[in-house]
């Protein structure tokens, strides 16, 4: 899961080496914390949050089979 999101984000940003994701797992939900280069934050979020919404939709579909919730946070 983490690797896929990292891969997707890396293809969207200008500085793929700066992409960092940490995962905090709980019983009910998993929190993914995403950190990218400052200039790339806008690219990850997208126009009116369109990019990040698409990523979150895919995450929730992917975690549905494990009956868990996954939260994606973008840190700055």
């Amino acid at each position: 899961m983490k690797d896929l999101i990292k891969h997707i984000v890396q293809t969207m940003v200008d500085e793929p080496e700066e992409v960092e994701i940490s995962e905090i797992e709980g019983d009910q939900s998993t929190v993914l914390k995403l950190r990218v280069a400052k200039a790339d934050i806008g690219k990850v979020i997208g126009k009116k949050g369109r990019n990040v919404r698409a990523i979150r939709t895919i995450l929730s579909a992917a975690s549905a089979k494990e009956k868990k919730h996954t939260v994606l946070e973008i840190l700055e």
Binding site: T11, M12, R53, I55, T57
Partner: peptide, 21 residues
Amino acid sequence: AVLIGKHGQTLEAIQYLVEKI
């Protein structure tokens, strides 16, 4: 069913991201 999602929203998200990539 999971790939399509509610009102096709997962499908739309996948399509959007693949197009971006």
